[in-house]
């Protein structure tokens, strides 16, 4: 095999890993980073997005639109959850873990009861591209592109809208923000909506590559938390930085030592980063850029 195809191949794997990690982590990072809520039901939010997407797709809605529907269904579901449960748990991080964990069990079992153990899948679109003796799924690159796109949307949302300004003010100093007339309650609700919506869109994007079962969220939750914790407090710096770092390590190790080696390398590096940079990569980056 030539060097070009090997490099191209490694790039594909890193891009695909980057896409997956950013997509699973983005919604969680917003909810955790901005609201201090540790949402252990995040995987199940992804599952809701995947199910809503698949069900819409089976009704004849085009895939792209179905993913948008999946995102909005999950967002609205998130708002309902926020109003009923989460809003009582702000500043109660540990309680929020217990409540959302319970929520995840309820969601998994409810979906099992309503839709049964599995749901028919969606075929992966776009097909494959071959180079040399290798071939790769184009959809893996689509996932990476979607991750970059969503990161840009979140960047614009928090830097160029009134909501973004108010949200940042609320995180900085809730009391002052409230006394200046910002409805912080509403800001939290919208933030939870945005985080849930992003989880739903991620689920919709994953739907064509996985088999749809009620427990599918469980396979994302660890990767999501590792990415968020390695990334650190700042969502827009931390998530892409840690997504990239972890996917390079995971992809590189998997390429040479197999899937098990990839998984081991990812977790070992995550532990090292947390040990050496307790505030996450984003803290290190912002400190060194700002001097």
């Amino acid at each position: 095999m030539s060097t070009v195809t090997t490099v191209l191949d490694l790039l594909t794997i890193i891009a695909s890993g980057f896409g997956t990690l950013v997509l699973v982590a983005l919604g969680l990072a917003i909810i955790f980073g901005m609201m201090g809520i540790i949402n252990l039901a995040h995987g199940e939010f992804i599952m809701i997005g995947a199910y809503a997407t698949a069900l819409s797709y089976q009704q004849g809605i085009p895939l792209v639109l179905a993913i948008v529907v999946g995102g909005f269904v999950t967002g609205v579901f998130g708002v309902i959850v926020e109003r009923l449960v989460i809003q009582h748990l702000y500043d109660r991080t540990i309680d929020s873990m217990v409540a959302t964990w319970g929520l995840s069990l309820i969601m998994t079992q409810s979906v099992l009861i309503v839709f049964g153990p599995t749901l028919g899948g969606i075929g992966t679109p776009f097909g494959a591209v071959s180079y040399g003796s290798y071939s790769a799924s184009i959809y893996q690159w689509v996932l990476a592109a979607a991750a970059v796109f969503l990161l840009s949307v979140v960047y614009l949302l928090f830097n160029y809208t009134e909501y973004g300004l108010h949200a940042k003010a609320t995180i900085e100093d809730e009391e002052t923000a409230r006394s200046l007339g910002i409805d912080t309650d509403r800001i939290y609700m919208i933030t939870f909506f945005v985080g849930s919506l992003l989880a739903g869109v991620a689920g919709g994007l994953f739907a064509p590559t996985i088999s749809l079962v009620p427990s599918l969220g469980g396979s994302y939750i660890i990767e999501a938390f590792v990415t968020v914790i390695v990334g650190g407090a700042s969502v827009l710096v931390g998530v892409p930085a840690s997504g990239l770092a972890l996917s390079i390590i995971n992809g590189g190790a998997a390429q040479f030592g197999g899937a098990l080696a990839g998984r081991v390398a990812l977790l070992v590096v995550a532990i090292l980063i947390i040990r050496l940079l307790p505030e996450g990569i984003s803290e290190y980056i912002t400190e060194h850029i700002r001097g």
Binding site: M1, D9, T12, I13, S16, G17, T20, S133, Y134, S135, A136, Q140, I210, S219, I222, G251, A254, Q255, G258, A259, L260, G262, R263
Partner: peptide
Amino acid sequence: EFIPLSVGDFGSTIDRVES
């Protein structure tokens, strides 16, 4: 290749099978 039950991304596995 023996694959841990938690792995769901098979990019590198598919490459190795192809080569």
